[in-house]
Amino acid sequence: MAELQVGLGDRSYPIYIEPGCLSRIGDDLNRRKIGNRYAIISDLNVTKLYGDKLLEILSNAGIKAKLFPFPAGEKSKNLFTVEALASRLAQAGYDRHDAIIALGGGVTGDLAGFLASAYMRGIPFVQVPTTLLAQVDSSVGGKTGVDLAEGKNLVGAFYQPEAVYIDTLVLNTLPKEELLGGLAEVIKYGVIRDADFFTFLEEYRRKILALDSDIIVKMISRCCEIKAEVVAADEREGGLRKILNYGHTIGHAVEGASRYELIHGLAVAIGMVAASRLSLIKKSLTEKEEERIYSLISAYGMPVNVPRHLDRSLIKRYLKTDKKAVAGNVFYILPDAIGSTYITDQVTSEMVDTVLEQK
């Protein structure tokens, strides 16, 4: 399996990226000896697709495991679900010598990672992301957490996995909306860190949307390389890592205002366009580069404007509870060029109103 490394000293871990690597996870877990047995945390949709398959793979490798499914969707990403899963683990006799496998998308990875950080005061876990968004973003870096009614990811922990296994073949069962949501996070990496990668995404759009195997592996690998570099430099988001939130400030607010009917990645697409427009208003970004960002997101078939039916006042209330807000000041990650961003709280309410109303 192709391997990248997240360099965090004694907490470093590998990211494996390869078509079909799910079938070889049992052998690797045996070699790494992460847990005596495994609790597979997965939503009901992914459980139906891959739960029994993973159980069989682990059983063939002589590994004991049990499935712990939960209802699919962002609405399950809360403390009630964590408590319910923890109780089921306790009832099944799981202890601190066992481990968790997060099998699924971003919700599952965040939820299972937070559960792992808290159960028995911390047990090991591995990530097996099954959505593009999880493969390129949420499964790497150790951010775990759940939502409150007041906003996304307001309760959580930095807790690194022992390994990440990315099987690109599972993307073939991904609904188109989820694929596009993941591609929003992919575009994010080009804007914040790598202009050449942004150009790659422009040039290979058709092959990417067709899930060309070689191109998809290259694309995911570059995203994970960038994420690993940023996390290794700033694990707990004290500075550089904040750039990974490009598109997420307004994106999270739009997502919350939609009552999570709008999936995360598509909300981030809207948020990226909004952030680029804010930078254009502040004269930090040229019209040409703002247009390239808008055009690429639009060309992939993602939404670029805040849906008209969403309550703008509710969006602004969510902005005030964003995790990046300090003493009531909301911080934005804005591009000043493709491949470069900066962090600022110098964004007025009038500027925000302007981008929220653009069509």
Results as ranks from 00 to 15, higher is better:
Asp353Lys: 10
Ala299Phe: 01
Asp43Thr: 03
Leu280Gly: 05
Pro19Asn: 14
Glu229Asn: 09
Val146Lys: 09
Arg222Asn: 13
Ala269Asp: 04
Gly301Tyr: 02
Phe80Pro: 00
Ala184Tyr: 11
Ala118His: 14
Val6Asn: 03
Gly62Tyr: 00
Cys223Phe: 02
Ser284Thr: 12
Ala232Gln: 04
Lys227Ala: 06
Asn60Val: 03
Val330Ile: 15
Lys48Val: 10
Pro14Ile: 00
Glu287Ser: 14
Val273His: 09
Arg32Cys: 04
Gly113Asp: 02
Leu154Ala: 05
Gly109Gln: 07
Ala228Lys: 12
Lys288Gly: 00
Ala2Thr: 10
Glu203Leu: 13
Ser23Ile: 02
Arg24Leu: 10
Gly73Ile: 11
Leu310Glu: 10
Asp137Glu: 11
Ile166His: 03
Tyr246Phe: 15
Val6Ile: 06
Thr130Phe: 10
Gly142Ile: 06
Gly151His: 13
Val155Phe: 08
Arg222Gly: 03
Gln358Glu: 15
Leu4Pro: 08
Glu225Met: 06
Gly156Val: 08
Pro71Lys: 15
Arg121Ile: 09
Gly247Asn: 04
Lys64Gly: 05
Lys64Thr: 07
Leu8Gly: 03
Tyr159Trp: 09
Gln91Ser: 14
Val355His: 11
Asp98Thr: 03
Val107Trp: 01
Leu29Tyr: 00
Gly265Met: 08
Ala65Gly: 00
Ser42Phe: 03
Gly301Thr: 00
Glu3Asp: 07
Ser295Tyr: 04
Asp311Lys: 08
Gly271Thr: 06
Arg31Met: 07
Ala118Asn: 15
Gly105His: 13
Asp95Phe: 01
Ala118Ser: 15
Gly238Val: 07
Ala325Thr: 13
Val326Thr: 13
Ser42Asn: 05
Glu83Thr: 07
Thr47Glu: 15
Ile166Ser: 02
Ile293Thr: 07
Val128Ser: 00
Val136Gln: 00
Asp353Trp: 12
Ser139Met: 11
Arg32Asp: 10
Asn329His: 12
His248Asp: 07
Ala269His: 09
Thr199Tyr: 06
Ala134Asp: 11
Ile216Trp: 02
Phe158Cys: 01
Arg241Ala: 00
Tyr13Val: 02
Ala84His: 04
Asn45Val: 14
Thr144Asn: 12
Val82Ile: 15
Arg193Phe: 15
Lys64Val: 02
Leu44Gly: 12
Ser284Trp: 13
Ala149Cys: 00
Lys143His: 09
Val6Arg: 06
Met1Trp: 01
Asn36Ile: 03
Glu235Asn: 08
Ser12Asn: 10
Thr341Asp: 03
Leu115His: 10
Ile123Tyr: 09
Gly145Ser: 07
Pro19Glu: 13
Gly190Lys: 09
Ala210Lys: 12
Leu310Thr: 04
Phe331Met: 01
Ala99Asp: 02
Ala134His: 08
Lys188Gln: 09
Met219Val: 10
Leu171Cys: 11
Arg312Tyr: 07
Ala86Met: 15
Glu177Thr: 14
Ser117Pro: 12
Gly247Tyr: 05
Leu209Ile: 13
Ser349Arg: 11
Ile270Met: 08
Leu209Lys: 13
Gln160Arg: 01
Asp194Ser: 08
Lys282Val: 01
Asp137Val: 04
Leu174Glu: 12
Tyr13Ile: 01
Ser258Val: 05
Lys283His: 13
Thr199Glu: 15
Gly142Tyr: 00
Asn36Glu: 12
Lys283Asp: 14
Arg11Thr: 07
Arg222Lys: 15
Lys207Ser: 12
Val164Ile: 13
Glu235Cys: 05
Gly109Ser: 04
Ile297Ala: 05
Gly251Leu: 06
Thr131His: 13
Leu201Asn: 01
